[in-house]
Structure formats: structure tokens, C-alpha cells
Design a protein around this nucleic acid. Structure first.
Lengths: 139, 139
DNA sequence: GGTATATTGTTGACTACGCAAAGAACAGTA
DNA sequence: TACTGTTCTTTGCGTAGTCAACAATATACC
């Protein structure tokens, strides 16, 4: 439990200094980039990131100010505000991804063998996937 | 990475509502209880919990107010302030430990077999232990 | 001894969240 | 249509942590 805290902080700090992104912000961009239209309802984004809606609102404030994400509305449901990845956001993600993946690799490098990593991910995959997929506009 | 965040929050929330302890506060009590004299320098406690010294200062503020930990000084180095577990702290830890361990069990129950848990902990043990042991008063 | 350097702990200012409450919009039902 | 309940989002307030700067003390070296 403790190791995760520090690992998270380490990765988060690297992203922050190198690209000005928190780990959650990075993952938000990543999640959005994998959506069909690079957009997601804020509630759904919250579920994916395991944040509360208020956390997402505040995180998106920053990303919107930075121009990495835009707010878009839904034609059929005026309650909904989408988080929509911008071109700048896509570029930022691409730039950050390389460094981020390299950081993670470094953390494991030399510590575990290929076989051990495979074992580990096999076992971890059996744990419940908390954040399932969600439908889009019409819920 | 995401699953850890929510798991931590879940366990932390349970400790909080059931015993008024944050997860870090719980671990602080646990770490102290395992020390020879149930005491630790604040810096060392910070290293064990992977917190910064200021984080420890603030957490101990709460634990001291609650009477679970006392401040003690070192005879040979006046910079040092120990965090010293009190009897009340020991009792609180004992009370919280049962519920906490049960919560963790529940999380894994039914998800992994005994063999899988063994495999998992075997592999995880190979990852570097970030927080090593420390000497006491004279560093 | 006297001075530079390191360690310990605290504080102020800040960030990043959570929770609870609220308002707006939607959906179902009488 | 009016009423009731649900969903989506934001906001105020509180908590827990970080970082940078600081004072006090200890250590090392001349």
C-alpha cells in the first residue's frame, strides 16, 4: 500500500515537471483519446478515473484553461457537458506518453523478469475491474 | 494504478468512519507499535510512511490531540522529537486492526485463490523496499 | 574554539481531492 | 399537465498532503 503512494507521487511529479500534467490529468487525456469521438461525459470520465464528479470538474478547469480539452454540449440532453479532447490535447498526450512509459519501465527494469511480469499481470487481471464501459449521450 | 487509488480511499474511509483514523494515521500507530520502545523520530516515521516531515508533523498534531501519541524529547539531541505511542494509542490500534484486516480480506475474497495470492506476494516481494530501517536517537 | 555545513522539525502558502448541498434538466406516472 | 424522482454538474467547505523557507541544534574541519 505504501509503495503505491510513493510510486504514484514519483510518476506524477515527473509528468508534472516535464509536461505540466498531473497523473490524473494525463490519464484523463489518455482515456479521452481512446473514445470514438475523443469525448466523454464528465460523469463517465469520473468513473473511469475513479474520481468524484467534483474532482473531474476541477481537473477539467485546468485542462480547459490549458486548451487541452474543450467543453462540448449534448444536443439531446442539456444537462450533459462533454469533455472533448482538442488537437493541442492530443499533441500534449503524445509528447507526454513517451516519457511516462519510459518512467514506468525504469521502475520495473531489473527488478522483475519477463516471466514474473507476465505472472503478475495475469494475477492482477483477475481482480475486479471497477470502472466498466459506459454508453455515450443517451446514457 | 487507478485501482489502488480507489482501494486506498475505500480502506481509508472505513477506518475513518469506524475509528476516526486516516489510513496513514493507522499505519503510523502500527509502525510505532512495532518499535522497541513504541517510539520513533519524526523524520524516521516520515520515511517509513513515505510522507514528508511536514506531513508527519500535521498528522501527529491530530494523533497528539486525540491522545494516541505523545511527544517525547531526546536526551542527547535537542533537535529530536519522538513520536511515542500511548496506551490509548495501543488500544486504538488494537481495536482498529481487526476491522481493517477484515476489510482487506473482503477485498480479495473470492477474487483470487490461495495459490494466486501466494504467487502475487512472491512476485511483489521482489520489488525494492523503499523504506528501510533506521537507527534511533544517535541516527 | 570558531566557522561552514548538515540535520531536525515547524510553518505558510498552495494543490488536489472528497463530501454534501444545490440547481437545472430529464423521465415516468397519475 | 403537474408531480415526483433521478441524473448531471457545479460550488462551498473541509482535509491531507506537498514544497520552500526558516530557526534551532549538531557535526566537521581549520
Amino acid at each position: 500500500m505504501r509503495a503505491y503512494a510513493s510510486t504514484t507521487r514519483l510518476l506524477s511529479a515527473q509528468l508534472q515537471t516535464q509536461h505540466g500534467l498531473s497523473l490524473n490529468a494525463y490519464e484523463a487525456l489518455l482515456v479521452l483519446s481512446r473514445e470514438p469521438d475523443q469525448r466523454l461525459k464528465r460523469v463517465d470520465l469520473a468513473r473511469r478515473l475513479l474520481l468524484t464528479p467534483s474532482g473531474v470538474t476541477r481537473m477539467l478547469d485546468g485542462l480547459e484553461q490549458a486548451g487541452l480539452v474543450e467543453r462540448a454540449s449534448c444536443a439531446t440532453d442539456r444537462r450533459i457537458a462533454y469533455a472533448q479532447l482538442t488537437d493541442a490535447g492530443r499533441d500534449k498526450l503524445k509528447a507526454a506518453a513517451g516519457a511516462h512509459v519510459a518512467s514506468i519501465h525504469e521502475l520495473f527494469e531489473g527488478q522483475l523478469s519477463e516471466a514474473e511480469i507476465a505472472k503478475l499481470s495475469e494475477v492482477l487481471d483477475k481482480l475486479p475491474d471497477v470502472a466498466g464501459p459506459d454508453a455515450s449521450c443517451g446514457t
